[in-house]
Write a protein that binds this DNA or RNA. Structure first.
Lengths: 122, 122
DNA sequence: ATAATATATGAACAGTTATTCATACGATAA
DNA sequence: TTATCGTATGAATAACTGTTCATATATTAT
């Protein structure tokens, strides 16, 4: 007799650990939450943005400063600041024609620190 | 007279804040470090991987368990576990044909927690 | 040996994303 | 007003990434 295809016959039913699976299923955050969490980390997953965040960690800076500092075009910086703004990771204030950006809150610092600890070890 | 193009004339030299830029430049981590950090966060920036990590946070699980739990193909899970393994975020042990995965260290938990705090606020 | 099962992996395709370029917007100064 | 400067943004392109499919590997059982 043919094995039934299509469905997830990744392994025989007998071998799996349904108790553990069920228990964990009940403990997992909602899919939407996990999706949002991934979206947040995606922001940190770009070296340009990480560098911007590290720079702002030291000092409030205008778009132009950031571009000079990083040797990246003003446009690229602006685009990335837009992303960071949308995720509420940075805030800004206007002073004439200049706009100064700074970190929005301490979670940014914590997240960066934890990540740094991981890559620095070993 | 023509303005010189090509270079980053994102803003006139007089308007920028060279003191702040220079100070921050000296304080920034090395480019390579920032790149590695972004690479790490990139791993967390995918909902499938985040979900796997959250599942492993509760219990050691085999590939098949994870696939069933998440309703994702075994192949997709395997591919992602490969990524997580490469970044030393998960470890594994073999038991016959089955391979059990678990979290590699506590940084994973810290990073996830900090991210979760950020999205839960407001 | 062969078969069956759990996992891994290469190739291909679709979807996403970061940069560049050109241009627009907004504020200040003349 | 017009000009200038700092910033923002839409479109286009190139590079990257996650899934699927097919298949390979590794372990155990017969």
């Amino acid at each position: 007799m043919e094995q039934e295809r299509d469905q997830d016959l990744c392994c025989a039913v007998t071998q799996v650990h349904p108790d553990a699976v069920e228990r964990v299923r009940g403990l997992l955050p909602r899919d939407e939450t996990l999706y949002d969490l991934a979206e947040l980390f995606k922001i940190f997953g770009d070296s340009t943005r990480v560098k911007i965040l590290y720079a702002l960690l030291e000092s409030e800076l205008c778009v132009c400063d950031i571009a000079k500092l990083m040797d990246v075009s003003q446009s690229a910086v602006s685009h990335q600041l837009r992303v960071l703004k949308a995720s509420k990771l940075v805030k800004f204030r206007r002073e004439g024609k200049t706009i100064f950006y700074s970190l929005a809150d301490d979670h940014v610092v914590s997240i960066l620190s934890q990540g740094m600890e991981h890559i620095e070890e070993e």
